[in-house]
Amino acid sequence: MSENPTTHTPIAVGDGAAIPHKSDAGLFTAWRIAFFGSILLCLFLAFGRPDQYLAIFKFIPDGILVTFKVTVGGILLAIVFGLIAGLGRISSNRLINGAASLYVEIIRGVPLLVQLFYIYYALGRFVKIPDIVSAIIAMAFCYGAYMAEIFRAGIQSIPKGQMEAALSLGMSRRQAMRQVILPQAFKVVLPPIGNEFIALLKDSSLVSILAVADLLRRGREYASESFNYFETYTVIALVYLIMTLFFSKLISMMEERLNEGR
């Protein structure tokens, strides 16, 4: 049998939560213990010691929703930014390539926290947009740069022959990219994008410094008025943990599905 041209080199894993595949028995078990353990602990705290904890659980739900919105909005917009910049990075047009490379280099060289402050307050000077939208744009602008590198690597991992075959059939470069290269690249980039999603979920806590009322900010508000710092941050940590574990499971299920499709 000839070599299967569809096998691509996998892209190195980022700093997101480890994504539990069934094949990794240890991690899979750990996932179950952590996920169900956190939920049980939350239930125990809320109903076992309601005087200290129930009020916290009542205070934070809208913060969870905001964290969720920032994360999902951020990752979707980051994919758009990343795709545009990633295509720019492999463009033969020197101007486009230069602009995309500059974006990636600048963003990757500035800490996320600084970028958040900068984009949030810089945007505020010129346009009137709601704070949560500014926060999403700021997160996406940063993650887009990392996403660009994932897309670039993903596109470049598709064998050259694929583009040549598409072009030989009379497709334009754009048609070949859309019909042939990107659908294959998406499959390659899905695991690293999943990792970015989890990393973004955790980094979304940084938007609390922008006075966006996310999960962490709600926790800080509660703690700063009740002075129950330990109890509050225990709950905040548990809720973040449940969210990241839930989403990493969801992503691993999506990946398994995609692989079954073949």
Partner: peptide
Amino acid sequence: SKTYDEIGLAFEDMAAGR
């Protein structure tokens, strides 16, 4: 209610119209 880490950031956000 919108809470800020520093009061200066609240004034800056008011300047930005948020």
